[in-house]
Nucleic acid binder design. Structure first.
Lengths: 226, 226
DNA sequence: TATACGATTCTTGCATACACAGCGGCCGGA
DNA sequence: TCCGGCCGCTGTGTATGCAAGAATCGTATA
């Protein structure tokens, strides 16, 4: 049942627990509302409650888990309403990033963005959704970095991370990867032309399309199971 | 030296420590780069190291403190560059909020915003900067809430909180409260007319003016003291 | 005199111990 | 049968103990 190895790998035990839990939550392996028992998690990771508690506290700060004093921690519930609220902010942040990136990216950064986009052609063609999801990450990351604002990069990444499960889900709606890639293509063109305002509009549309594709999914898993 | 009382007040010890530290950092009482010794903080709050550690971990997640593994925690350093990066994102978030608020606020919310603005007239006239700072908070909070997106409210508040020290500082530049209030007045008008795009432009300008007023201050305290 | 090495000390990271708050079950009474 | 209070149990919140890594200082050597 336990596949963790005791590889300190320079990382603190509490950090490894935090990363592992974060991963399980964002991938959906731990469902919203799931109880997070400290002792039990400690056993699972071969650790005591202390590092587990520290990990849970940090995850609570990022919003991935909710802690009720003296009543333990649960994976944060995600009512459909909150998901779409997050999506709205996310769309605007992404639009902001691409607008700045279109103005500020270096030539090398621009061609990197195009290269990532080109790579995705074959991936979409063969229907490899997991691989496209990874390329999608790299594509948007390249845009964040293109803002040349490292604080913004961090915020955008953390927001995207919190929505990872939903982003992945919407890609499984029929035909969505193809349309997503097409929208990326338009974005690349706008960035290449340095037309930030147009790129921002395209990005907003791109995000709203994703949000729309998501609706079915959210209504299945989104209701607060508490 | 110790003015804390042992008032659980329903709050967990670790939470009270976190709030106290957060306050001392955002007000500038704890300067960037200051060492945060666990034992020492525990003594100061009449607690053991355990709740202190949990508080520090949470503050590290919000970015207020930096933790180097096995080397302790320090108040996050704030190079001028990062401050202005934060300001850039902040300006855009505020612009986004006011744009949405101008479209979505209820009549009651709109008149509340105007009332807060009206209150500030006398406060600015008598030069009470601390009180104006508080009204400023309420003014911007009212705009966040006006987006009717509770996730956005949280993000905007947390960003604003991290910049609290700098926001306060720029208000002490000569003539800045008066100009700030004047800009708020224009914002209120745009919101009243439901002109979100114009309100967003005004807000961006408002934030850049604040950023400009800040420059002197940052160059004094901003350099990384490590 | 400067530098490199080593022991000491200090602080952190984690484990364990203990106290107390919630929660559920049980019992008695209406 | 249903309601309310008592009691024990489970699990969290905090304190303390121990070990290992980092910093510091002193000493010896070039």
């Amino acid at each position: 049942m336990n596949s963790e190895q005791d590889s300190p790998a320079g990382l603190l035990l509490s950090d490894r627990i935090r990363l592992a839990l974060s991963d399980e939550i964002t991938t959906g392996a731990l469902a919203p509302g799931a109880q997070l028992d400290e002792q039990q998690l400690g056993d699972r990771f071969g650790a005591s409650r202390t590092p587990v508690r520290e990990a849970l506290r940090q995850l609570a700060t990022t919003g991935l888990v909710e802690m009720r004093p003296r009543r333990g921690a649960v994976v944060a519930s995600m009512p459909a309403e909150r998901v779409f609220e997050m999506f709205e902010l996310s769309a605007e942040i992404e639009a902001l990033c691409v607008r700045l990136a279109a103005w500020r990216m270096t030539p090398v950064e621009r061609s990197t963005l195009r290269r990532i986009h080109d790579e995705s052609e074959a991936v979409v063609a063969r229907g490899d959704i997991d691989e496209y999801d990874r390329l999608n990450w790299r594509f948007h990351d390249a845009i964040y970095v293109g803002t040349h604002n490292s604080f913004m990069v961090k915020q955008a990444q953390s927001l995207r991370e919190r929505m990872a499960a939903f982003r992945r889900a919407q890609l499984r709606q029929g035909g969505r990867p193809e349309r997503s890639r097409h929208e990326h293509g338009e974005l690349v063109e706008a960035v290449m032309q340095g037309d930030g305002d147009h790129a921002a509009k395209l990005m907003r549309a791109h995000m709203f399309n994703a949000s729309g594709a998501l609706e079915d999914f959210v209504q299945r898993i989104g209701s607060d199971p508490r």
